[in-house]
Design a protein around this nucleic acid. Structure first.
Ligand SMILES: NC(=O)c1ccc[n+]([C@@H]2O[C@H](COP(=O)([O-])OP(=O)(O)OC[C@H]3O[C@@H](n4cnc5c(N)ncnc54)[C@H](O)[C@@H]3O)[C@@H](O)[C@H]2O)c1
Ligand SMILES: NC(=O)c1ccc[n+]([C@@H]2O[C@H](COP(=O)([O-])OP(=O)(O)OC[C@H]3O[C@@H](n4cnc5c(N)ncnc54)[C@H](O)[C@@H]3O)[C@@H](O)[C@H]2O)c1
Lengths: 247, 247
DNA sequence: AGGCGCTTGTGAAGGCGTGCACAAATCGCG
DNA sequence: CGCGATTTGTGCACGCCTTCACAAGCGCCT
């Protein structure tokens, strides 16, 4: 525990990240580990074993170790992982050491909820601008931010160095909004509208579609129902196993 | 086009679904195909090629064909897929031929938005009950539904045959709510709280965590930024390729 | 009626991700 | 100072998923 070397992360000379190539599946799980670590840290834990952290994150412990090994060796055999150090490492890899500016387009039902969500701020993001096309909404004040007209997007995006945009408009407007975001220099988009977006290759899009989530659950309900007719009525209701469903 | 046989789906004698075992990855994409098909159908298309449907759904056409082939042979070589027939098929497989009852627990910021979302109704679901623990919220009327106290959950769930529950409470309350949902007979849960849920093995859980989505985008921003220092300034801004990000 | 172009359905190959099982490493204790 | 208990890091094998490439099937046009 003597030297608390961070590998080559902060304080490095060249400070070149140059992640080899973290598996996509791994980076999708890092945020979950991070959340679990924060919980554990608040609980007063100094170190945590892979088994413990895996349980807190709802994954297999071997998978967790392999994931973390991709970042480097930040654990101590026989002891576990230093919680604070690991938090720092994951936050660095995810680029959360700097608070990232986010803009939100479409301040309707969903947009209102998102604008008022404090879970963003506590996890590395700051909503710095709200946009809408409806003149009736422009000027409205939400959680300390004034809704601006979508035409101002480009100007504000540059001014505030916004790299991430959230789309919460109806599906019909989403592609047009995406185009405007891209034109304004945004290179990452989180899309809540149920539609496919076309964007240049250097722009990342992630989509959240609640109806799809429900439909997947519906399928499993359908399947489960079709098996109810089986003998051996008692279902395999185990102890309290986490039912992990693909990312 | 003469005989419109549905394989063995509706109107079958035994009517036993007995899906062999659709790959998990496939069923996660079926809802996307379904949405694309509805769009195309409204656009007046009678049939659609795998290429066209794949484009509309943002996937590779070979993947789409393989996915659909798991449901049976519902295409016509040289022509494509019958839009209406395929919609019917997918909806059957997903169990959407019956409108599924959903309850929502936690009518706060996010819960309000979800309760008022019409995208559920149009895609096979009906929110039949809202619950909250806050006495100040109980009794409130939202979009035609009255918020009920969480203690009534079990009673209402049985009465309305609710199999799917949505959790939109703070993370601290989510596990307790999940336990109550399970006790009330709910076997599928959509969880918006940023935490891991422990449930019996026969219960499916899907989680939506917005901060995680943003953190994944942040990683890609971080990585992109670390490559900016490269020569050849012009980024590989292709035509308009969809940037598919894992499901 | 026959041929031609188009599209589906699928065999095969390759890549990715997962999980087991164990060697290597570290700590604490006698 | 050495030993056993504990936990990490990883080699390996297996299975799933994706993608290519193509034969089989279908309709249309001549
Ligand atoms: N409400 C929900 O709970 C919910 C859930 C899942 C998905 N969604 C999806 O999220 C999106 C928004 O849902 P909502 O319920 O908030 O809808 P909404 O109609 O309440 O809000 C949409 C907002 O977008 C604005 N808008 C429209 N066109 C615009 C444009 N070109 N530029 C900028 N702003 C524009 C509108 O003025 C409106 O304020 C929809 O695509 C919906 O399918 C909503
Ligand atoms: N608001 C958002 O945009 C947003 C975005 C992503 C995730 N989330 C997550 O969704 C959840 C809800 O967020 P929110 O902003 O709506 O919070 P909120 O505080 O506005 O609402 C939470 C609601 O849950 C109710 N509640 C608390 N304990 C309960 C219990 N035991 N049983 C039933 N109801 C209970 C509260 O009375 C309140 O009405 C949180 O976990 C949050 O992290 C919210």
């Amino acid at each position: 525990m003597s030297q608390q070397r961070h590998g080559s992360t902060p304080g490095g000379t060249g400070d070149v990240p140059a992640f080899p190539d973290l598996p996509e599946a791994t980076i999708a799980r890092l945020p979950e580990y991070l959340r679990a670590l924060h919980n554990l840290g608040e609980g007063g834990a100094d170190t945590i074993s892979s088994e413990g952290l895996a349980a807190a994150a709802g994954v297999n412990s071997a998978k967790l170790r392999k994931d973390l090994s991709h970042l480097g060796s930040y654990g101590t055999r026989g002891v576990g992982y230093d919680v604070a150090l690991l938090i720092e490492q994951i936050e660095y890899v995810l680029g959360l050491d700097q608070r990232r500016a986010v803009c939100l387009v479409g301040v309707g039902n969903l947009g209102h909820a998102l604008a008022g969500y404090d879970g963003f701020a506590s996890r590395g993001f700051k909503i710095v601008a709200l946009f809408d096309a409806d003149p009736a909404k422009v000027g409205e004040r939400i959680h300390g931010l004034v809704v601006r007209h979508i035409d101002e997007l480009s100007e504000v995006a540059v001014e505030e160095s916004i790299a991430i945009g959230v789309i919460a408009t109806p599906a019909g407007a989403a592609q047009a909004v995406a185009d405007e975001l891209v034109a304004a220099g945004v290179t990452s988009i989180l899309n809540f509208a149920p539609c496919v977006l076309s964007v240049p290759a250097n722009v990342d899009v992630r989509k959240v579609d609640l109806a799809i989530e429900l439909q997947i659950l519906s399928f499993h309900e359908h399947r489960k129902a079709s098996l109810t007719a089986l003998p051996g009525g008692r279902s395999a209701t185990g102890a309290g196993t986490q039912e992990a469903v693909g990312s």
